[in-house]
Amino acid sequence: MAGQFEIFTDAESNVRFRLLAADGTVLAISTAFEDKRQAANGIMAVRECAGTGLIREARSNPWTGQRAGKTASPAPTHRRRHLPAV
């Protein structure tokens, strides 16, 4: 069984959706929407984007909890090693 989207109303009466894994585990919860139609549009956007979305690591400063800015020292560069096919 595939995962599914579930539209619900939160404690503040906002409409949201959550993405559930096949076993019912909550994988993601959306931002608040004004109505079900906007939530459904959000689901469609996630469906369209998720299949082609790239994975990116967001790094934050452990001391401030903020993302590293241009003033922070650059991350170390690593050379990619190309291993021969076996």
Rank of each mutant, 00 (worst) to 15 (best):
F8I: 06
G69L: 07
A39W: 02
Q66S: 11
A32I: 01
I55P: 05
F17H: 03
R80T: 11
G51F: 11
A72T: 02
L20V: 02
E34I: 10
G3E: 04
T77Y: 11
A58P: 10
N14H: 04
I43N: 14
K70S: 07
F5A: 09
T25C: 04
W63V: 10
A21K: 13
S60H: 09
T64P: 00
A72C: 05
E57V: 07
W63N: 04
T31G: 08
R59G: 15
V46S: 04
Q66C: 15
V86P: 03
L20P: 03
H78V: 15
I43Q: 08
N14Y: 08
A22R: 12
L20N: 11
N14L: 03
G53I: 02
T25M: 09
A68R: 11
G53H: 13
R47C: 00
L83C: 03
I7C: 07
M44H: 15
R79C: 12
L54P: 05
P84G: 07
V15R: 00
A50N: 08
P76A: 12
G51D: 06
P62F: 03
L20Q: 00
A68M: 07
S73P: 00
P62D: 05
I29D: 02
V15A: 01
K70N: 13
N61I: 00
G69C: 13
G53N: 07
E12S: 13
R16Y: 03
F33V: 02
I29E: 11
E48M: 13
I43V: 13
D23P: 01
A75E: 02
G69K: 05
A75R: 04
S60V: 03
